[in-house]
Write a protein that binds this DNA or RNA. Structure first.
Lengths: 337, 337
DNA sequence: TTATTTTATGCAATCGTTGCCGAAACGTTA
DNA sequence: TAACGTTTCGGCAACGATTGCATAAAATAA
C-alpha cells in the first residue's frame, strides 16, 4: 500500500532517535553539523515530506483556509477564487473550496466540516437562503478567524470586503433612465442578503433622484438567486403581466442577468427595443452576447485577494484583533447598447 | 480560543475513561445500556464531533477525495465538479478542489499536497502542459486510487472516463463540411493531451471521408488551452495570413471556442459569412452568443458522477483491483447557424 | 464456598511530529 | 580535582481517537 516515509523510518535507518531527526531537519542549533548533514541527505534521498495531518493534530493548525461560495460555476466567484488562491499560495496556505448551491443546509454542513477539519480561517459569502448566521457566529466567538466577502453578515463583527453595490446599482439604473426608460423594474436575489439590500438601495436612489416613482410591484426576488431558470421566468412573467408593464429591468446578479436574457429570448421579447436591460455580471463573454448587456463589473479577483490578505493577517496575528475593516471597492459599468 | 470538545472532556465530565466513552459512542456491545445513554446524552449536549484529523492520522484515510482540474472558471469543469460533489456527498466523502491553471508545476505541487493530506483517492484531468505523468504514476503504483476524466494519461492503467471526443469532433467537422465550407482549420490545445489527439483524429476522419485534403498548416495548437487570449489571437492571425485562408475553424475546447469568437470579433471577421465556426463548449449562454456557435456538448455532470462512483468503489474495494474500465460517453451537437 | 463465566471498564499502544527534560561527554575554571 | 557550563543527543509525553488486552466486579455454576 501507499506508505510515505516518516521520521521513524529515517531514525531507524540512521540509528538515531526521532527527536534528533526532527531537530536536524528543522535546523535546530542543538544538533551537530555533521548529524544534520547525514539526516538531510538521507531525507532528501528517500524524498521525505512531513505528514501534514500529524502536524495539524499537534499544532492545531493546518495552514489551510476554507472558502464558502454559492457556486463555482459563477464568473464572479470563480474570479474571486483565483484571487484567493493567488494570495494563499504565496503565503503558504492551501485553499479548500466548498459550494452551498444557495442552500442554507449545505452552508451549515460545509461550515461545520471545514471547522472540524481544522482550517485556520474562513472566507465566506453567504448563500441566498441564509438569514440566520448562528452557525458562523458560534465559530467566530470561539475564535475562528472569518472574513466575509460579497454577501456579508450584518450581525457578525469581523473584516468585510465588498464591491460598492449601492453605487454600481445606482449607475446601472441611471444608465437605463438616461436611455429614456421610465418604468424600470428590479430583479434581484433574496431580500435579506447584504448585496440585495445595497443594490435595491442604489436602484431606489437613482429613481428618486430622477423623480421617477418607486413601485413595489416592480421589485422581484428570486429565492435561489437565479440558479433555476424557472424562478427567473416566473418573475419576468409576473412583471410582464402587470397592468403597466415595465420598459426596462435592472438585474442584480450574475446568474440572474444571464437567466433574464435567456428568458426574454425565449419569450421573444426584444432587447433593447421591447425592454432595456442592465445588470451585474462578471462574465467573460459579455461582448459576445446578443442581446447586448450593459453590465456592472465587480473587481472580483481583487476582492478575493484582499479578503485573503486580511484573513491570513487575522490568523497570524499574535494578539486578538478587535478592530475590523469594512472595505468597499468600486465597480465599473461597461456600456453595451 | 477555538477549542472543540474531545473524548477526554466527556470522560472527565462523566468520570469515565476515554475508551469507555469512545465505545459508548460507537455503540459497542460491551458497554452497559445505562452508560451508553449517559454518554450519548452528554455528547449531544456539548455537540461533540470526533476530530477528523485525529481520525485521519489513526485510520490513514480521510473520507475525502482530491480533484485536479485546470480551471473552475470553465463550464465543462464546473459542471463536472457539480457531478463529482453530488456523488461524493451521498457516499460520505468530502471534495477538495485544486486548479492547475494549465501549469505542469502547479499540477505536481497540487498532487503532492493532496497525497500528503491523505486524500483517499484522486480525480484527475491533466493540465495542458503535462506530458510527463511520473508524479501520478508513482502515487498510483504505491496504491493510491486514481480515476482520470477528460484529459487522461495513456500510460497509467486505471479507470478512465471521457466523452466520445473523436465522434464529437467528427460531427462538428462534418457539420461545417455540410454547410459548404471547404478549407476547415483546426484550433486545439497542446498536442500531447488525450483530448487533443482524439479530437484531431475525428477532424481528420471527417475531412478524409468527405474527400477534403488534410493540411498541416491548418492545425494550430495553443500551449495553454486558450487560457490567454494572446495565444488564440496569434494562432488565428497565422491562419489568416496563410496564402490560402481557411474558410472555417473547428475549435477543440471550451476556453478556445470563446476565445476564438472574441478574437474574430476583434479582428472584425464576420461569422458565419467570412468564416464558419464550430467547437466544443459546455457554456450555458451559447444560445445568447453572437455570432452563434454550433457546439459539441459533453455530458460533464454525468462524467463527474461516473468518475466519482468509480473512484469511491476503488477506494472501498477490499481487494486490489486490476481490471480497469475505459468508459466513453456520447457528446451531442447543438446546431446554431 | 470456590471456580468459572459474563459484563463493564481501564490501560496502553498507535498514527507522525515536536516540546521538554535529562543524560552523557567534553571542556573550562577555581 | 571538584564543580560547573556546553554541546549533543535520547526518552517521554502530548495532540485526539480507536482498540487489543488486562482486570475488576458481578453473576452464575459446581
Amino acid at each position: 500500500m501507499f506508505e510515505p516515509s516518516t521520521l521513524k523510518d529515517i531514525a531507524k535507518a540512521l540509528g538515531l532517535s526521532t527527536s534528533t531527526v526532527s531537530r536536524a531537519l528543522r535546523d535546530t542549533h542543538e544538533i551537530s553539523a555533521e548529524t544534520k548533514k547525514i539526516v538531510l541527505e538521507y531525507a532528501e534521498k528517500i524524498n521525505y515530506r512531513p505528514n501534514p495531518i500529524a502536524l495539524s493534530l499537534k499544532e492545531r493548525r493546518s495552514k489551510s483556509i476554507g472558502v464558502l461560495v454559492s457556486e463555482v460555476a459563477n464568473h464572479y466567484f470563480s474570479q474571486a477564487i483565483n484571487g484567493i488562491e493567488s494570495i494563499a499560495y504565496d503565503r503558504g496556505y492551501h485553499v479548500i473550496i466548498t459550494q452551498t448551491h444557495e442552500s442554507y443546509e449545505r452552508e451549515k454542513i460545509n461550515i461545520q466540516h471545514l471547522a472540524s477539519r481544522s482550517v485556520d480561517g474562513l472566507l465566506v459569502s453567504l448563500s441566498a437562503e441564509t438569514s440566520d448566521t448562528t452557525h458562523l457566529k458560534n465559530l467566530h466567538q470561539r475564535g475562528l478567524p472569518i472574513v466575509f466577502f460579497d454577501r456579508v453578515a450584518a450581525d457578525i463583527d469581523t473584516h468585510k470586503i465588498v464591491a460598492n453595490n449601492e453605487k454600481g446599482a445606482f449607475e446601472a439604473t441611471e444608465f437605463l433612465i438616461n436611455k429614456g426608460y421610465k418604468r424600470i423594474a428590479h430583479l434581484t436575489s433574496t431580500s435579506h442578503l447584504s448585496i440585495s439590500i445595497e443594490r435595491l438601495l442604489g436602484y431606489k436612489k437613482a429613481l428618486q433622484q430622477h423623480h421617477l416613482p418607486v413601485c413595489e410591484d416592480y421589485i422581484k426576488h428570486c429565492a435561489h438567486g437565479g440558479m433555476f431558470l424557472d424562478e427567473v421566468e416566473s418573475a419576468i412573467n409576473s412583471l410582464m403581466n402587470l397592468p403597466e408593464k415595465p420598459d426596462a429591468i435592472f438585474v442584480a446578479g450574475d446568474r440572474l442577468s444571464v437567466g433574464c436574457l435567456m428568458v426574454l429570448k425565449k419569450l421573444n421579447i426584444k432587447v433593447p427595443d421591447d425592454i432595456g436591460i442592465a445588470g451585474f455580471s462578471n462574465s467573460d463573454v459579455l461582448d459576445l452576447l446578443n442581446p447586448p448587456l450593459t453590465a456592472v463589473h465587480q473587481p472580483a479577483y481583487e476582492i478575493g485577494q484582499i479578503a485573503t490578505e486580511m484573513l491570513i493577517n487575522l490568523i497570524e496575528s499574535k494578539y486578538p484583533v478587535y478592530e475590523f475593516e469594512n472595505k468597499v471597492l468600486d465597480t465599473s459599468l461597461s456600456i453595451r447598447s
